[in-house]
Design a protein around this nucleic acid. Structure first.
Lengths: 116, 116
DNA sequence: TCCTTAGTTCAAAGGTTATTGAACAATTGG
DNA sequence: CCAATTGTTCAATAACCTTTGAACTAAGGA
């Protein structure tokens, strides 16, 4: 499970990765949980298991998230401090901007509680 | 030449569009000119005429830039106020972040002067 | 040990993106 | 009118992205 170092995180790559509605929803959801690690299954509202594996890998490879293996789970966190160090203010303004937009509808049709 | 209204500007689309090194360089260059309109030819360092037409159309359709026909020229400006209204702080942090990164090398190999 | 849970990997399909050169349109200036 | 300048459109190509189901691996619990 490769993660880039902080100084290897590339702006176009980060922006490109966040330019997908599913991944943006994942990041927004992670941010709403304030650093509490989530396992992959908690994102099932955003897509199938296989599809999530794909999107979470993209986020990880771009340096946006960190995945840690804990038993049979992979716990996902936002790399907030690393992103803030590399691109100050960027993540905050993206997350704030995401709040000003209609979120990705969850698969079941029900909405996820994401505080503003 | 369609431009989206301010409230039609979509965050994933904007992020996706900025997630390309050529377009990010164009936006950075525009920002460095502080609102002075530039015609397409002034971006020739970033790509061929045809290729620029393509990238500038993407930026325009995403709502990042505005193109105004003046004689045989199309004058390009950043939609700074519109983007700030829709996604406060986003453009600034992206531009600041772009300054923390190696810029797209210009075609001739020479560097463009983009103030920090 | 056997089964379940949690995720990944693979291959395939279908769609989109970036880049190119050639041909085209529109405006200006001589 | 003619020619030069500016930029767009088109067709083609190659690369990449997203989504899917089936098969797989690895750890934990009964």
């Amino acid at each position: 499970m490769p993660h880039p170092n902080t100084d290897q995180i590339s702006l176009p790559v980060v922006l490109g990765v966040l330019g997908d509605p599913t991944r943006l929803a994942i990041v927004r959801y992670l941010a709403s949980k304030q650093g509490v690690p989530l396992n992959c299954s908690q994102f099932l509202d955003f897509g199938s298991k296989t599809n999530l594996s794909y999107h979470l890998a993209k986020l990880r490879e771009a340096g946006v998230t960190r995945a840690e293996v804990v038993g049979t789970n992979r716990m996902i966190t936002l790399r907030r401090a690393d992103l803030d160090a590399r691109f100050p203010g960027l993540l905050d303004s993206v997350i704030a901007a995401a709040g000003a937009e209609p979120a990705l509808p969850a698969v079941g049709g029900h909405d996820l509680e994401i505080p503003a």
